[in-house]
Simulated assay, not measured.
Amino acid sequence: MAKRLSLILLLFLVGDIYFYQAVITLTQNPVLHQGYWVVDILLIGGIISTLFMLRAGKQVRHLLSLLMTTMLLIFIPKLFSSPVLLTEDILRLFQGFPPRSVYISEAALVLAGLIFLVIIFGVTRGRHFYRIRKETLYFPDLPEAFDGFTITQISDVHSGSFSDAKGVQKGLDLVNSQNSDLLLFTGDLVNNLASEMDQWIPMFTNLKAPYGKYSVLGNHDYGDYIKWESNAAKEANLTRLKEIHAETGFKLLLNEAVEINKQGERVALIGVENWGKGGFHKYGDLKKATARVPDHSFKILMSHDPSHWDEVTVDHEQHVHLTLAGHTHGMQFGIELFGFKWSPIKYFYKQWAGLYKQGGKYLYVNRGFGFHGLKGRIGIWPEITVLTLKRAGAALTR
Score class of each variant (00 low, 15 high):
Y283W: 14
P306C: 11
K227R: 15
R240N: 10
E243C: 10
E273P: 01
N261M: 08
M302R: 07
E273Q: 14
L253N: 00
A291I: 06
L253W: 04
T290V: 14
I244E: 07
H281G: 11
N231A: 11
A236D: 02
P306I: 06
V258K: 05
F280D: 02
H296P: 02
T290K: 06
W275T: 04
L254E: 05
L269H: 04
I226F: 13
E247V: 04
W275A: 02
L238M: 13
G278I: 03
A246R: 15
G279M: 13
L253K: 05
L241S: 01
H245M: 12
E235F: 14
L253D: 00
L252F: 06
K282A: 09
K299H: 10
D285N: 15
A232T: 05
M302L: 14
E235T: 00
A233N: 12
S303H: 07
A257W: 01
K299S: 08
D295P: 03
K282S: 00
K282W: 11
H304D: 04
H281K: 14
M302F: 14
Y225G: 06
K262Q: 12
I300S: 04
G284P: 01
I260Y: 11
A291C: 09
E256P: 04
E256N: 07
R266A: 13
H281M: 10
G249A: 08
Q263W: 14
S230E: 05
D285Y: 13
S230K: 12
E273T: 05
N261P: 03
A232L: 13
E256G: 09
V267G: 06
W275M: 07
K251A: 08
A291P: 00
K234A: 01
P294A: 09
L286Q: 02
L301G: 02
G278K: 11
L238D: 00
G249L: 05
L253V: 03
S303P: 03
G284V: 01
L241V: 01
K227S: 08
S230Y: 09
H296K: 11
K251C: 12
A257H: 12
T248R: 12
L269P: 01
F280L: 12
A289Q: 03
E247M: 14
G279V: 02
K251I: 08
E235V: 04
S297L: 06
N237H: 11
K277L: 11
G271S: 08
I270D: 04
T239L: 15
L252G: 01
N274G: 10
G276I: 04
A289Y: 00
Y283I: 02
I300Y: 05
Y283F: 12
D285V: 05
E243L: 14
S303C: 14
F280E: 03
G264N: 13
D295V: 05
A257F: 08
A246P: 01
E256M: 07
F250P: 01
T239E: 15
V293T: 13
A257Q: 03
E273C: 09
N237V: 07
H245R: 07
S297T: 02
K242H: 07
L286I: 15
M302D: 00
D295F: 15
K262C: 08
T239W: 15
E265T: 09
K282Y: 13
E243H: 13
S230Q: 13
L241D: 00
K277F: 10
K299G: 06
